[in-house]
Amino acid sequence: MSSTDTTESSNRSSLSLRRKSWNSYAVGTGIGVLSWLVFLIVNKPLGMSTEISKFSGWVAGIFMGQEAILQNSYWASKTPGFGYSTVFLIFTAVGAFISAKMSGDLSTEKVPPLWEKYQGTGVAKRMVAAFAGGALLLFGARMAGGCTSGHGISGTLQLGLSSWLFFPVMLISGIITARVIFRKQVN
């Protein structure tokens, strides 16, 4: 993939939206500069999982009533509602969509080839794993107090102790899990 990608876009500027990928260090620098701006202009570090947990409160509210949600000790302090972080989440999706649209990276992938090679072609199995993975992600992120954005970028760059604990533990745990998932090819 990477070789065709380079030939395809060799005559375009290296930061063209039509390219599928940009240099990793350039992207990292971009996220770093974005961090300056959010601290300076709105004083709200980049983060994602708090907003998703608020959204989950809103979803639960559809079934239980919004009144009942506010009785919950967690959502009482992280009240579901539309605000700065909601807009940020939505436009992160919009940005990724525009970027993928322009580079031809849109895909309705159900089972990634790499997963398929080790876990088979079953769509249901992949979807169960994705659902469980998502559930563990957000549960873990809330318990840890942040995710790859809130801890991994915003917290570490402020030299927060909790974030520098998050990073290595998450990495080791992921490495162990990957060893189990990608241990043996199916065929």
Binding site: G133, G134, L136, T148, L165, V169, G174, I175, T177
Partner: peptide, 10 residues
Amino acid sequence: GSAIFGVGMA
């Protein structure tokens, strides 16, 4: 939380 997160991310 980070350990659970790592499992979910993988």
